[in-house]
Computed example of a mutant assay.
Amino acid sequence: MSIEERRRFSRVSFHATTHISQGNNQCQAELCDISLKGVLLTPSSECTLDPTDLITVSIRLADDAEIVMQTRQARHDGETLGLICESIDVESISHLRRLIELNLGDPNASERELSELMGD
């Protein structure tokens, strides 16, 4: 079974400059894709993170819209960084749900995924 077949949450390709922080360590990253369960990033070269600590991810969508989530490192292959969402506030999950809904073109799909996420 491939990773795509095992994946329960749709990933949408969405490119945005993203701010990541861990304690006093802060850096920029390019968002590659996003799902209700996490993000895939390409961090800047000067970014050094402790893989065992929480990482705050902030994605600016517009002047007044931002997705902020607490994540943990799932994988790092030297170029990309896969992060699993540990917690997200209500406003951020609303923005994320709408972003996924718009990119999937199917509001029912995002609703099913959100229900599945709440069941985890």
Rank of each mutant, 00 (worst) to 15 (best):
D120V: 10
R60I: 14
S10N: 10
R7F: 13
D89S: 02
I3D: 11
N25R: 13
S94R: 09
L31A: 01
L102D: 11
N24Q: 15
I55D: 02
K37T: 07
S2M: 12
G105W: 06
Q28T: 14
I88D: 05
S10C: 07
L36E: 07
P51K: 00
E30G: 12
L41E: 03
L117P: 03
I100P: 02
M118P: 02
N103L: 15
R98E: 07
V68W: 04
D50T: 06
A62D: 15
H76C: 15
I67E: 02
A29H: 01
S87E: 09
R72K: 15
D120L: 12
I34K: 09
R6I: 06
V39Y: 15
H15V: 14
C85W: 02
R97V: 11
C27T: 04
A109E: 12
N25D: 15
N24Y: 11
A62P: 09
L117E: 04
E101D: 13
I93D: 01
V57H: 03
D53G: 05
R8L: 15
P51F: 04
T56G: 04
R97H: 13
G82R: 07
L61R: 11
T48C: 12
N103Q: 14
P107F: 08
E113W: 02
S2Q: 09
I100W: 00
D63M: 13
G38D: 08
L96N: 06
S115N: 09
R98P: 07
A65R: 15
L31C: 06
M118H: 11
I3F: 10
S35H: 08
A74R: 02
R6A: 09
S45G: 03
D50F: 05
S13G: 06
L96A: 04
T17S: 14
S94P: 03
G119F: 12
I93G: 00
V12D: 04
C27D: 03
R8M: 15
R11D: 04
Q70K: 14
S35I: 08
N103S: 11
E101G: 08
P43E: 05
Q28Y: 12
M1D: 10
R112I: 12
Q26D: 09
E30K: 12
T56K: 13
L54K: 13
G105R: 10
H95P: 00
V90Q: 06
S2P: 01
N108P: 00
R6M: 10
R60N: 14
I3W: 11
P43M: 03
A29F: 01
D63A: 14
Q26R: 13
M1H: 09
S110K: 07
A16Y: 02
V39M: 10
D120T: 09
R98W: 07
M69A: 13
E46C: 05
R97A: 14
D50Y: 00
G23K: 02
S44N: 10
E101V: 02
S58K: 15
D106V: 12
L54R: 09
F9R: 00
S94Y: 07
R11L: 00
L117Q: 05
R8V: 10
L61M: 14
C27R: 00
M118E: 10
T71D: 01
N25P: 03
N108Q: 08
L54S: 11
T42P: 00
